[in-house]
C-alpha cells in the first residue's frame, strides 16, 4: 500500500503550474489528494510526476455573488465551503450536500473542485454541479475556458478536460426566488459512500403551483444523472400519485448496479423512496422560502 515513485513539484503561481503541466502532460495535479492518494497507494493509477497546487494562493478564494452564485477556487476545502455562511444562504443545496461528503476529517483536506473533476458518480459534488447547472473554469498555457456541467462529465471518472488543463474554479448558480432544495442519502455509516443519494430542486410560480422539478442521483448511474420530473405534477400540486410517478420516471433514467454493499433491486428501491422523500422536502422548502420572500 505504498505509492510508486514519482517526481514532485510545488509551484506557487498558476502560471508556473500550467507551464509545468504543459511540459509534462502525463503528470497528475494534486489538490486535496483524498481520492488520488488512495488510488496511488493501491497502485490503481500510476503517476510519474505530481504537480502540487496547494501552494497557489490565487486558487483559495470563495466569492459569493448575491443573486448570481458561488465561485470557489481549486484548493478550497470541502470544510471551508461547508462552513461559509454566505455561500449557504445563496445556494443552500451546496451546504446540504457537503454535509454528506465523506467524513469531517476527509472534508478538512479534500477540495470541492477536486471532487468535481474526479467525476465519480458516487460522489455528491459532481451530481450537485449537474443538478444546479454549474460551470467549471479550466486553464492551460493556451488560456482559459468554461465547461458546463453537462459537457464536463463524459464517462465514469472521466471529464472533458484536455491534457495540460487544470481546473481552477467552479461556479454554482444561486437559488432563484420561489425555489426550494433538499438532499438526502442512505449510507451504511454517515460519511461512507452513499448506497443511493438524491438531491432535488423545486420551483414554484407566483401562485405557489409547481413550475418545475428536477432531481439528481448519486451512486445509481455511471455519470451524474439528473432527471426532469416536472411532468409528474401536471396540476402544479404535489400529490402522492405525482411522487410515485416521479420515482418510477426517475428509475427509467438510472442504472442501479449490485456490489457487496447492496443489490441492484435494493438500490432501485432506495432511489424510489428517496425521490418521494426529497422531492416532497424540496417542495416544502420552496413553499417556506416563497412565504419568507413575500413577508420580507
Amino acid at each position: 500500500m505504498k505509492p510508486a515513485a514519482f517526481t514532485y513539484q510545488r509551484p506557487t503561481t498558476l502560471t508556473q503550474a500550467l507551464a509545468a503541466y504543459a511540459a509534462a502532460p502525463e503528470a497528475k495535479v494534486l489538490a486535496g489528494g483524498q481520492s488520488l492518494i488512495p488510488l496511488m497507494s493501491m497502485r490503481l493509477t500510476s503517476v510519474p510526476e505530481l504537480i502540487d497546487i496547494n501552494g497557489i494562493e490565487e486558487l483559495s478564494h470563495i466569492h459569493v455573488e448575491r443573486g448570481q452564485g458561488v465561485r470557489f477556487g481549486a484548493i478550497v476545502r470541502h470544510a471551508q465551503l461547508h462552513a461559509h455562511a454566505e455561500a449557504r444562504e445563496v445556494q443552500p443545496l451546496l451546504h446540504a450536500a457537503l454535509s454528506h461528503v465523506a467524513h469531517a476529517t476527509i472534508r478538512n483536506r479534500g477540495t470541492t473542485v477536486g471532487s468535481i473533476v474526479h467525476a465519480d458518480a458516487s460522489g455528491e459534488m459532481p451530481m450537485i454541479m449537474s443538478l444546479l447547472g454549474g460551470t467549471l473554469t479550466v486553464a492551460s498555457v493556451e488560456g482559459r475556458r468554461e465547461i458546463t456541467a453537462e459537457d464536463l462529465f463524459i464517462g465514469p471518472l472521466e471529464t472533458s478536460l484536455q491534457a495540460g488543463e487544470i481546473a481552477v474554479e467552479a461556479f454554482v448558480p444561486a437559488l432563484p426566488a420561489r425555489h426550494g432544495v433538499a438532499f438526502d442519502e442512505i449510507a451504511r455509516r454517515h460519511g461512507d459512500y452513499a448506497l443511493c443519494g438524491v438531491g432535488a430542486i423545486v420551483g414554484l410560480d407566483a401562485d405557489g403551483a409547481i413550475e418545475h422539478v428536477r432531481a439528481g442521483y448519486v451512486s445509481v448511474s455511471e455519470t451524474p444523472a439528473v432527471v426532469d420530473l416536472t411532468g409528474c405534477f401536471p396540476d402544479g400540486e404535489l400529490t402522492e400519485q405525482g411522487l410515485k410517478d416521479a420515482a418510477e420516471l426517475a428509475l427509467t433514467h438510472l442504472e442501479p448496479e449490485a456490489d457487496i454493499h447492496a443489490s441492484a433491486e435494493y438500490r432501485a428501491q432506495l432511489a424510489r423512496t428517496l425521490t418521494t422523500r426529497v422531492v416532497a422536502a424540496a417542495h416544502a422548502d420552496a413553499g417556506a422560502r416563497a412565504n419568507a420572500e413575500v413577508t420580507a
Binding site: D52, A79, I106
Partner: peptide, 19 residues
C-alpha cells in the same frame, strides 16, 4: 492515522510528507 494539521483532524496516510 488521524493527526492534527493546523489543528484540524487529517488522515496522515492521505498526505505526502513533502507536502
Amino acid at each position: 492515522c488521524t493527526i492534527l494539521v493546523d489543528g484540524q483532524p487529517t488522515r496522515a496516510c492521505l498526505m505526502f510528507a513533502i507536502a
